[in-house]
Design a protein around this nucleic acid. Sequence first.
DNA 1: ACAAGTATGTACCGAATGGTACAATTATGG
DNA 2: CCATAATTGTACCATTCGGTACATACTTGT
Lengths: 182, 182
Amino acid sequence: MARIVQERHDVIPLLAETFREHGYEGASLSLIGQRTGLGKGSLYHFFPGGKAEMAEAVLAELDAWFETNLFRPLQDEPDAAAAIAAMFRTVDAYFRSGRRICLVGLFALGEPRDRFARAIATYFTRWCQALASALYRAGKDPALAEEFVAGIQGALVLARALDDPDLFTNALARMEARLAGA
Amino acid sequence: MARIVQERHDVIPLLAETFREHGYEGASLSLIGQRTGLGKGSLYHFFPGGKAEMAEAVLAELDAWFETNLFRPLQDEPDAAAAIAAMFRTVDAYFRSGRRICLVGLFALGEPRDRFARAIATYFTRWCQALASALYRAGKDPALAEEFVAGIQGALVLARALDDPDLFTNALARMEARLAGA
DNA sequence: ACAAGTATGTACCGAATGGTACAATTATGG
DNA sequence: CCATAATTGTACCATTCGGTACATACTTGT
């Protein structure tokens, strides 16, 4: 049978999107239920810890994704400049060119920060670390790493505030241009 | 008698801080009540529209403050370079050197964005506008305005995510340095 | 002092919250 | 084919939500 959700793993992206759109508090169990098509029985079967465990799972999955698709390449790719360029492309794709926000950033700003402090801190620390490494190997100033990561987060805020996704793409382009000129 | 809150106007900063720390949804009426020392009777007397009107009032007050202390000077000060430098000082003070987040940014990322869309958009638009004007008059690239406003928002996210306020101050310093070198 | 209007505490409302219990269903392996 | 376990829908729990009603207390002008 073609069920959409068959395992715990399959439901995580749906949870992620729900948290992204409504925040931790705003994502009520009933909303999560209708978004995932799962009743409370199933949800608590997969995530006995309730909403908190769902968010943990989402953050873990997200962290793994970034580790694989962004941080690791930034660190390991021999051609560091190419790795950085690839990062900008991946970031643009991931955030749907500014139409999607960063769940970790949202959590960091809001109430759930304390509860998920470790996951949130790790995410940004690793990103800055990996990018700084690539910048260094590319002969650029590693201090730009913090600036770029913050720039990406800020651009997401601005793009959503002004409802203008182009603003995000442009911001990415300016960062790349800045790098080329440095 | 030394009452802390005597008028509607006096309660707005307390509301602002509550929204800032707990978000729009997280700031429940009972929490607002204990933070302001006001019962529901008083709160609904001052803000018949309930929580939404409280948030509107906070945004309006905040907008007025930025208009007076940031946007207007950026536009009107004859010495544009000095106005920009003053902006960085004011921003650092307002956000308590990274210990405080931007309420408008938080609203922009989260659920309340649609409800308060106009106020949120106006805030960022005006900021970019005013800064671009000052940059132009100072002989700098006006396109930096978006970059700096986004950089400030992103630095606030990062500072809070890593629980490291210095990160914010450093980000501001790097922007100023970048301006000096341009 | 007194009346009028402002301010406020308290009790209450229906709805929604996160979470639990459990019976019924569904799949699976022997 | 059946027993066992994994899965899921439903009813329910106490609590909290935003909001309303209203009686009581304060001020304040006269």
